[in-house]
Each structure stands twice: as structure tokens, then as C-alpha cells.
Amino acid sequence: MIYFKYLRMVVKSMLQYRANLVLLTIGQLLSVAGYFAGIALLFARFGSLDGWSFGEVALCFGVVTAAWSLTECFARGFDVFQSTVRRGEFDRVLLRPRGTILQILGGNFEFTRLAKLLWAFAVLGVGVTQSGVEWSALRGLTLALMVLSGFLIFSGVFILGASVCFWTVEGLEFINIFTDGGRELAAYPLTIYTRWIRRFFTFILPFGCFNYLPLLYVTGRSANGLYALTPLFALAFLLPCLLMWRSGVRHYQSTGN
């Protein structure tokens, strides 16, 4: 598949700068470690968060971090799309007989972010053992689905943000409110937030659908099996993102030489 051939190219390019690769990876490892240590300290002091134990929050945090690092690694091209447009490199994408999304995905990987993924799995391990959840096949499956769904939803947000670049390449920082801000917010169970924030992050940007809602089922707070299926909502969220991208591509104005 052509996607993997792109991937091989990025790996080859990256191996040209080995020291850089090692340092970036270490940096990524440290950043998550520090962050999670902070949460652990808070819990050592306060015991629980609105009825959620440390192990349960670790599950929440682990899912978000895993989904986020996968997105940063594989959907990186949409994250840095602003500069792709500024440098006029999108011209070249349009000159190749392949889909634009495939090329943007394939043109950019940030493997150093996978270091974060290792951490996310470690935190998930803590969550799985410390949360007191009685694990069943269905609950385990739900957990895997949550990570996958989070990856798709974060990718959708990246695509939305990138689509805006077709109309303007200025003042795009506000998108970080939804990506970075949303990620921070979703690292904790949504129940601790006020009502309109909960609604926003359930129905508009459905971050709640891949961690808070299914966690209700996984942790046994609700017996309703429908909660286990909320991660599938990600697919419905991707659709408008892709439509936005398509209309953006049609609107593309290129840049002069």
C-alpha cells in the first residue's frame, strides 16, 4: 500500500538525524512523566476526585494520552498544515494523482510521539490494576475502542483546524483551545465540570464519547451497554470534518512565487 511507502520515506529521512531523534524522544518521555506524577501527587493528598478513584482517573488519563499521542504521530501533517500552505507545498500535493488526505497523512509522521504512547500504556496499566474494575472481554474491548475512537476524534479536530487554513493562515492559534485545551480537559472525568462544558464536549466536540461515557460502563457506574458503544460516535464526527476539508481544497488559492 502506498501509505506504507510514504511511511518508509519518512523513516529514512528521520534516520538522517539520529541525535535529534533521540533527544526529542527523551523530551517526550519526560513531559508525560512529569504530568502524570503531578496527578499522582494530587491524589496522594486528596484521595479521590468527585467519587473517582486514582485508578479510574488513570484510565481516563491513559486513554486520552494514548489517543493524543497516536494522533500527534499519525495525523501530524494536519497539525503542521498551516506551514505547508504557507510554503506553497500544497501545490505539489494537488499535482499528484493521489487523494489529498492520504498524501497529507503520508507526508508527515512524528515517531517521537510514540514515546508518549509507551507512557500512556504504562498509565493504562496502572489504571487497569488499581481501578478495581472487574475486567471482562467486553470491558477490555470497550477500552481498546475508546483509544481508537479518541484517535479518530482528535484527528478529526486536526483536520478541521487544517481546513481553516484554506481560507486564512492567520490567527489560527484559537484552534489550540480545542486541541490542547480539550485534551487537558478530557484527561479527567467530565462529571467534575459544569454543565455547559459537559454538553459542549459531548455533543459538539465529542471528547466525552470516547472516555467519560464509556468509562461509566467500564467502571460499573452504569449497567447500560449503550455507553460501551458511544466511542463509535467518532465515525459520525469524522464525516463533517472530511466534508469541511473537501470544500477547503476547492477553495485553495495557492501562493505566489
Partner: peptide
């Protein structure tokens, strides 16, 4: 485009050619 490249900056030319072969 004389002022922009379509090849990959950090890899040997032949690798770029082979990826182009696959893209097309």
C-alpha cells in the same frame, strides 16, 4: 517549479524516484 522541489530532501534521489513510481 524551478524554485521548489518535488523530491525528498534527506534521501537519495533514487529513493524519491521509486516513491514517485509508486505514487504514479
Amino acid at each position: 517549479f524551478g524554485q521548489r522541489t518535488q523530491l525528498w530532501w534527506d534521501v537519495p534521489i533514487i529513493d524519491s524516484f521509486e516513491l514517485l513510481r509508486d505514487i504514479y
